[in-house]
Design a protein around this nucleic acid. Sequence first.
DNA 1: AATGAATGAGCGTTCATTCAT
DNA 2: GATGAATGAACGCTCATTCAT
Lengths: 222, 222, 222, 222
Amino acid sequence: MNECSFIVRSNGSKRRSIINGKGKSNNKYNRILEAAVKVFAKKGFYQATISQIAKEAGVADGTIYLYFKNKDDILIQFFTYKTRQVFDLFRQEVDNAQNAAEKLRNLIRCHLAEFQRDRNMAIVYQAVTRQNDQLVRNEIREMTKLYLDIVAEIVEQGQAEGTIRKNLYLSLVKRFILGAVDEVINTWLRSGGKYDLVSMADPLIDLFIRGIGNPENSSNSQ
Amino acid sequence: MNECSFIVRSNGSKRRSIINGKGKSNNKYNRILEAAVKVFAKKGFYQATISQIAKEAGVADGTIYLYFKNKDDILIQFFTYKTRQVFDLFRQEVDNAQNAAEKLRNLIRCHLAEFQRDRNMAIVYQAVTRQNDQLVRNEIREMTKLYLDIVAEIVEQGQAEGTIRKNLYLSLVKRFILGAVDEVINTWLRSGGKYDLVSMADPLIDLFIRGIGNPENSSNSQ
Amino acid sequence: MNECSFIVRSNGSKRRSIINGKGKSNNKYNRILEAAVKVFAKKGFYQATISQIAKEAGVADGTIYLYFKNKDDILIQFFTYKTRQVFDLFRQEVDNAQNAAEKLRNLIRCHLAEFQRDRNMAIVYQAVTRQNDQLVRNEIREMTKLYLDIVAEIVEQGQAEGTIRKNLYLSLVKRFILGAVDEVINTWLRSGGKYDLVSMADPLIDLFIRGIGNPENSSNSQ
Amino acid sequence: MNECSFIVRSNGSKRRSIINGKGKSNNKYNRILEAAVKVFAKKGFYQATISQIAKEAGVADGTIYLYFKNKDDILIQFFTYKTRQVFDLFRQEVDNAQNAAEKLRNLIRCHLAEFQRDRNMAIVYQAVTRQNDQLVRNEIREMTKLYLDIVAEIVEQGQAEGTIRKNLYLSLVKRFILGAVDEVINTWLRSGGKYDLVSMADPLIDLFIRGIGNPENSSNSQ
DNA sequence: AATGAATGAGCGTTCATTCAT
DNA sequence: GATGAATGAACGCTCATTCAT
């Protein structure tokens, strides 16, 4: 099963405490980070102001600088710690499954579930990964690679198992899958998150595996 | 054939003249728009300054306000007129083809070709379409719809032809295709545009049609 | 004669125009610089605010940044151009005289006259030259050297002429003269500039030349 | 002899205890004051922060406010108590000598010795006494007066003894001496304190007494 | 007494926009 | 039409000071 959102929710804040090593006052660190992501989601990074974040977090402007070096650092921390957790979770979910099909299903379900659970993260993530911005370029590259590597592993395992065909342009397949999932999330966000995102997982996987072609039509076979 | 970039190049400025209806000094309007897109691509919309755009266009700061209401308006015009052209072109390319497979191939090739040809447009387009920004939300929605409608048409035609299977979740299929193409472009941009983007079209279409599954494996068939 | 202040006043602003090369709008450059020196004099560099300077100059805050790179730059320009003028003037005055005694008298009179004429400059100069501050350290060092070199020349010429005794620790003599003049100015500034500073020149020179010792007292001679 | 620094060192802390009247935890008061002077010397008063001082003193930021009313008060206490000690010492040294020449020599030697011994004090003293600052204006005026009065006494005694000539502009002579000593210290500080400052005392006194003029030259006599 | 997290007023600086020339 | 100097609101950030523990 892939009830990954439960796992995260149960010890999310605790994990952050450990990562950050600030102990008790870590509450405020998280409150600010959460508030920042909320404001970034609403306004965009450059349109968000420290005052707005401070107000949202219920602290004074100056307090933010006790926990973050500067405005940029808030976004960097978001990627370094918060988003990282999610991607680590993806790996766990994949490792919990046996065969390629199950792995792919766990990955995509977990992906959709986590982004559905934390919409603000999803919005910021979407925005920043398409920005031509030096700010978190490295963090994004690293995280994207992490994801693509998982997909590559799954595909290779599937090829070994015989469930995935062999003549594939692997680096394209990785993008093909990530891009489609990403766009499904993007559409969901733009719709205002009205419907259940996770329910998209199975139809999407079906498209990945079987494509849209009619197998009975001879011109689609090689 | 789909030498769509040639078509655009041949009468691009003329079309803009007509759209803009400024006739004579329309040269400057276009110079500013081109310069703006270049600067937006490099710095991002909010990090770009009017001064930088003016300098790039070789005009005075104040001159920009003779052609555009304000900074936001530059981006809006970019979407309303410039990007619109490209999407109109997609439609032409699709209409030039007969069957669904050919239409899809023309669409994707033209999409990749145009974005490869005008990298600055591609960068700005990528950035803005993932931004949670009121600014050009309507323009983007409209343009995305235009694209998705084309895809829907193609899929439906393919289903009528028997080349595309029937049991498909159409609105998901549209995202599936747009998302994958988008991500392929995104990856290309992040790589610095080193390789030929159009060459990705055929392998990508193959993935759309046949999926990654091994058709000889019984568990992949319905 | 050493009516050096007349000379400066007559073409001061013109010279700045040339130096700055800004032509007509140079008026504002000078207004800001003058205003800044006034505010620096009253509040001290770090306590002065851009707003105060702008208000004093009768311009908007932002206007200052059209003429100066930043706050530091205002002080640097003050030293590089404005104060430099004064020291160049000292050299002129000295060169106008023939013998060492006359040169020394011209130097000190001009020094006192200029600092009396432009009290704000005097205050800022006094403050900054005693600050342990990297900001204008080089400018000060250069300017001090310029002054000390003049004194050294005078002393050496006096020794050649036979009017100044030979067994002198030259580098100490330079400080001895500069320090005394400086302190006389400092006292005058602290008194609120109530009395005529130039009238101190002759008694001061008398002290430099003859010292305070009673020459008839044998224990004072070597 | 004028081993004034020895005297201070031997009962310095005890005296401070008495002055402060805090007895027991007076250690911390002194540690903070010493730390503050060190930081002021390095950064300047307005560039120094309470945090830096607290860190240097090894106490918490808030602790400083148990011993000082505010940041300004630290500087005021420095002048009221710490620097005052040094000037009291000058008086002692002068009182220990018999004739004017010896008194002047003791004063200047002690002055140079003390400022050489405590460079941070010297730096702060130099900076603040040339600042046009309300903050410690009274303290400086008082202390300067104390010094000038000593010089005045010495000169008057010398005149009575016949070792110092009578036709002197006394208030100018005082500045003349203080200024020259001050500048010698200033130069030493700017050089980085590389050489022995006290060795400047005798050549400097020689300049005070005999001046730079050649007594054999008739134009130098009155 | 001692701490140091929290505060928020205040500053330097930027930049979209205006308007006199 | 074209200019670019001038504007001033707005923002990121600092740091003296307070106060609950």
